[in-house]
Design a protein around this nucleic acid. Structure first.
Lengths: 223, 223
DNA sequence: TGTACATCAGTGAACGCGCGTTCACTGATGTAC
DNA sequence: TGTACATCAGTGAACGCGCGTTCACTGATGTAC
């Protein structure tokens, strides 16, 4: 396997923009391993040594890229918020101008993201595990949530900035609560027993999610 | 303080039904310390040694009452489900016969319990931390959730047993999701920034909770 | 193109820590007589 | 009421474990000349 000429990866490293490393791309590999580990054992089961082990690297290696455990988890959370925000924004844009359709689309995107990316989503709402001041984390997460707020403002005829009215605040909180609660209950396995009776685990996305979305609070339901 | 005659506590122990111990009531003290610790450091920050330390007792002492860590946490969870179920049942009963009022009352009780008993509530939904087969845990938690299901059945005119119709299932999931999501977001601190703008942390219970309850899905809203 | 050097990603041994659990024990309590 | 004994709640030392982090290091890479 070991030949005298440079490996193709080393050549790529020379040509590429930002992959100057010894090891290929350990940074990316560590992030990947971290997500897999969270998926397997939950946010609590996470350990930096286990991540290093899975990446085939010494326990001190991650420190070079992320400083410490919180650094790595903060990076994973940042990726999560970034993808989450994009998913919400994309859904909102694709829904067209109707406020109810926009809220519906965002709710669908919210839950879909949570169920498709359980490791990231779970970490994102465990803020003791990462540093909220990490690189671009604060603005990125704020941007994600402002996407919902913007749709609520449009739905209630509120101005685009300034304090929310009570009605708008209620609608925002109710919307956020119902999709967040659904995601949380589904990820916690609380819906597994009824899902089993409806043809397996994907009944949650296929059947329960649309049922829930029918009850999404929208502006015109109550005065 | 130390006198020769028996202390009143020892006499009580003799007279009482089930408090025969050396130490007063270590069992209760350990449970209390466990809840305080979870409150302070979260479910993850829990440690049996720290509980023993707070109860002023050797690290081996808890084993006598609860076997091991899971045993103690299972007991706390059991207490939680028991109190939770009572709170829901009481609210339901006090609401009278109107289905919407019953759902509203249960939603209010659900969130109120979560915010008043954050340690218990947090543990109850972290089922990897305790043993679901512990003593009466399974039936007790089932009873709590059946209280909501019963109100949904009555609200939708479903028979008291048998599989739920799609409509009823949707209403159940939507109701559960919105109150659970609200509780989760509030406990996670996600509502603290807006609450600060409305006069402090109790704005969550005082203002946001009633706003959310206005949007509780009830049977007659959609066909 | 070839050599000398600086950089820095990754090594692996070592550290100190708090944890859960075990074990032989001790000593107060309740009970049998 | 008084004595002997069994019970068992609580002790405290010890165990082995996996953790996060440190440290001096090594060796491949990219760069300056």
């Amino acid at each position: 396997m070991a030949v005298k000429t440079k490996t193709s990866r080393e050549k790529t490293a020379k040509r590429g923009k930002a992959r100057p490393y010894h090891h290929g791309d350990l940074r990316a590999k560590l992030i990947e391993a971290a997500e897999a580990l969270i998926l397997e054992r939950g946010v609590d089961g996470f350990s930096l040594r286990e991540v290093a082990r899975r990446a085939g690297v010494s326990p001190a290696a991650p420190a070079h890229h992320f400083g410490d455990t919180r650094g790595l988890l903060s990076e994973v959370a940042l990726l999560g918020f970034s993808e989450f925000g994009k998913a919400l924004a994309d859904a909102d844009r694709a829904a067209g101008p109707d406020p109810s359709r926009r809220l519906h689309a965002q709710g669908l995107a919210y839950v879909t993201f949570a169920l498709n990316r359980p490791a990231r989503f779970g970490l994102m709402f465990r803020s003791t595990k990462f540093d909220p001041e990490y690189k671009g984390l604060r603005p990125t997460s704020a941007a994600a949530f402002q996407c919902l707020e913007r749709a609520i403002r449009d739905a209630t005829g509120s101005p685009p900035t300034g304090e929310l009215s009570g009605d708008a605040m209620g609608l925002l909180i109710a919307n956020w609560s119902i999709v967040h609660g659904f995601a949380h209950l589904a990820l916690g396995g609380e819906m597994d027993p009824p899902a089993r009776a409806h043809g397996g685990k994907d009944a949650i996305l296929r059947i329960f999610l649309p049922l829930m979305l029918k009850y999404l609070p929208v502006a015109d339901v109550r005065k």
